[in-house]
Structures are given as C-alpha cells and as structure tokens.
Nucleic acid binder design. Structure first.
Lengths: 258, 258
DNA sequence: GAGTGGTCTAGACCACCCC
DNA sequence: GGGTGGTCTAGACCACTCG
C-alpha cells in the first residue's frame, strides 16, 4: 500500500478511512474521480479553464505526474480538452464534437456532415415500456417525445424518434426551445446542465413503415438501418433514448475496430 | 529539440540524421515505431515474451518511463499484452480476442458468443472490381473466395463472403486447411504469418437475396444488416475483404461511443 | 526471493500560446 | 517573458507471478 495511496487525507478524513472504505485504487484513479465529481457538481461548467497541473497537483497533494495521469484519463473520455501552451478546459458540446463523437453516418465518398433536421411532432405523454426500460424509468413517468426527419445534402435519409424524461428537461417542448436546434446535445448542456458523455448504440435492419415511406421516399418494406441509442450523462445515467432509421442506399455507418 | 530526441543515434547513424530525416516525433513514439518494426519483421512472433522494460530501455538508451510509454501505446492497439508480474507478450489471435475485438453481434439478452461456421463454397478466380477496390489490388489478380453460413445458438443468422488475395494466402483453398477453422484470423496468423490488427466496417441495410433466403430461412427481400469489413495487417495493408449479411431479428450490432 | 510490470515522485527541459 | 501542457529522466517502492 502506498504511503499516500488514499486521497481521503485530502478530504479531511482520518487515515482510518482506508480501512472503512476499501478504496485501494491507484492514486491517479482516485484523483480522477475527485476531479470528475467536481465536473458533475457544476463547479466547473463546460468551457471553463481548469487550474494548471501544478496548482491542482499541489491542491491534491500529489505529484504533477500523478495529476497528469488523472487529467489524461478525463481527456481520453472527452470530458476535458487539453491544449499545449493554453491549458485544460471542460469539454463543451458543439456541432463538431457531435459529428466526431456521435455521428457515424458517412456518404459513399467517405465524407461526413451534420444533418439538417425538420421537426414533425413534439409532445408529452406517459412513457411506453420500451422507453421505460431504456431510460430506467418507472412506468407512468411523463416524457417528451420528438419525431423528426434528418437530411444530408438536401436528401431526407433518417427518421428519428427521441424520448426524454420531463423531469430532466422540464420545458423542452415549450418556447423558447422552439424551433428545436439541430444539435440537441448542445441545448441539453447549455439549458439543462446535462452533458451527454457517452452513448450505447444497437443496430438492426428493419423494414420501412408508413412514416418512413412518406418521409424518406423509400419503398414500403424497404430495408432501413435502425440505430437504437441510449445517451448517458457524466454519471452514467440514461438521459435520452433515440431510435433513428436510416436509408443506407447512399450512406453507411462506419466503425473502426482496433 | 530534446538532447536525445533522435533515436537514430542508437541505430548507428550520425546525429546529423536529425536534419536529413525530419523525425521530430517524441522519443517514445520513435521507440514505439522501432518496436513495431520488429513485430512486423517477425523477429518476435505472436506469443513471444518481450524483453523486460529495463532491458529494452537500456537497449534503446532511453529511460524506463519513455520505453513504458511506447509499450503502452502498442498495448492500446492490442499488438502486445502486458501482465503485471509476468511480462509483455506479443498479442496472439484466439477465439476470445476475435470475439472481443472483431465480433459485435449480441443476442437480445446482451450476450455474445462466437458463431459456428459452415462452408458453402470455396474457390479461386480473378478479383472482381469491388474486391479489387477494397483490397487495393490490380484487376486480374487471383483471389480466393469463401462463402459460408454462420450460426449462433444453432440458428443460422449470417451469410458471409470472404475474399483474400492468393498471393498472401497461397494454399488457403487446399488441404490441410480444410475444413477451414471457425476463427480464420488465427489461421492467417499461424499459417501465413499475417496478423489482422485492425478492421474497418461499413454497415448498411439490404434486402435478402436468394442465397440469404435459402440459408437463413428469412423471407425474400427481408431486411438484413450488411457488414462490409476490410481487415488490415500490422502495417495497415488490406489483407481480407468480407461481407456479412445478418438476420437481426434476434441479434443486434453493438457499438459504444465514448 | 527474484523478476516483472504498475505506481509515484521530483525535477528538468521543451514546445507552444499569448501578452 | 511568463504561463501552459508535453516530454524525459532517475530512482524508489508496490503488487503480482512463479519457481
């Protein structure tokens, strides 16, 4: 056990804490969690410049190398962004980040662009079973549902059904949120202080339904790529469920395995 | 510029090399490339135990920390595997690795298992245009084509067409390779000294064709998930092209974005 | 107990950014 | 010029594995 393996000393707890809480994680992992907690708390809102490595290391009573390893871990998860000569800032959602982290649809030429969106409907109601399971909500919870079509190069290629709990996004279906912006994650972050940090996507092939036919101009029963995405916030709590159905005649979903 | 930024000194080249070859990469990146070159050369075949950090650091004339950063980089790309107390070994293909790195199809219960394979046909011929583009081969090149069906829990769920250049796998269609094993990448590695290190997958939804209908028991024109994969070796050269068409009624393709 | 990778430290210098 | 993160070093100790 390291001499100062337990950071709890810096949280004004006795050294006995190492017995009560068996936190034998490496120091850098503990520091990373403490930093993450401060991100979650809102102490450092997105876009904020963090204190320098030297300052943070001194504050936590660890070496600069250890603190760096903690920050590198956060950077690897895209929670902070580091720039040599400038500093470390809390990651902020913007169209570019949405594109690179969350949008995997490419044209046949291998190009990627942010789709335009057109809202078809937006309303609230009680959560249906599938959404309740995805968002881990009790049945009967009130949710907001958005149905939109998304286009790439002026061609409608996706229908998208989004479900979010009202509790987290109380007035998402009210002005002044309307018309809803194209990059929702940015809105979630600036208006509701919810940062989508991670997402889990499940892909299937499905047959086009009546909505798909009308909105995408595909044949009835045409094969579509269905992307079922659960978006998680900084703490890993599901905050949004969206099901996107894509016409993949001119686009494809790219995934690099390494 | 670092005092010893250029490793060339340890390759018995003059210090002037830093001017002729503008390799201003960090030391650890240069060391990583030198190590990778030794992996590519076959000096350390898969499964080999590498020399210890201390030995390698001394051999390259860098500190242990720098060498560690190089090895960590290789480990992040799954090219070596490190175990505390044991050592660092060159990554080897096996069913588990295939499953975790290259197989993304999950059951509805979220379980993943390696599929069984049944060969439908295997033969050679001239490369067709699509395969030539994927594998970067000149037209007319001789290739081997494999067509197989893959099953999960005794249910046929995938048809798979594989194309590889004969030049790399001269007798893949001959005994004693037959019957072909379930995990091809392992065979590529042990018999042909080709390590699949990375893959690029493009996903689309397609309609079932006659083969799919017959082999998977799906309806004509049923929606299938088509996975178009190009497998790359250690140097990034395409070595295999495979197109897998999946019945996703009971399985889905999982992708985690973070 | 010997050997391995994993963690941690302290200190130095470099590359970059901005004032 | 003074700040930041990025690299590199040397040395210490810890956790793990195996004979």
């Amino acid at each position: 056990m390291y001499l100062r393996n337990v950071v709890t000393g810096y949280r004004s707890m006795g050294t006995q804490a190492s017995n009560t809480t068996p936190s034998f994680k490496p120091l850098y992992a503990q520091v990373k969690e403490l930093l993450l907690a401060r991100l979650v708390s809102g102490e450092w809102p997105p876009g904020t410049m963090l204190p320098s490595e030297t300052e943070l290391a001194a504050a936590y009573g660890v070496s600069q190398g250890t603190l760096r390893k903690a920050l590198d871990g956060l950077a690897a998860e895209h929670l902070v962004v580091r720039h040599q000569g400038k500093g470390t800032i809390v990651a902020k959602h913007n169209p570019q980040r949405s594109l690179f982290q969350f949008f995997h649809l490419y044209s046949e030429q291998g190009e990627r662009q942010l789709p335009e969106s057109r809202i078809i409907s937006c309303g609230r109601g009680q959560v249906e079973p599938a959404a309740a399971a995805a968002l881990r909500l009790p049945s009967g919870t009130e949710v907001i549902r958005i149905f939109r079509v998304r286009s790439l190069s002026d061609r409608a290629v996706m229908t998208e059904r989004i479900t979010v709990p009202c509790a987290l996004f109380p007035d998402l279906d009210q002005p002044p949120q309307h018309p809803l912006p194209n990059t929702l994650y940015q809105l979630y972050q600036v208006r509701y202080r919810i940062t989508v940090a991670k997402a889990i996507e499940r892909l299937r092939a499905v047959a086009a339904n009546a909505d798909d036919v009308k909105l995408l101009g595909v044949d009835p029963k045409a094969p579509l790529l269905e992307i079922d995405r659960i978006a998680l916030d900084l703490e890993g709590t599901p905050v949004e469920w969206r099901v996107t159905r894509c016409d993949t005649r001119h686009h494809h979903y790219l995934n690099v395995l390494d």
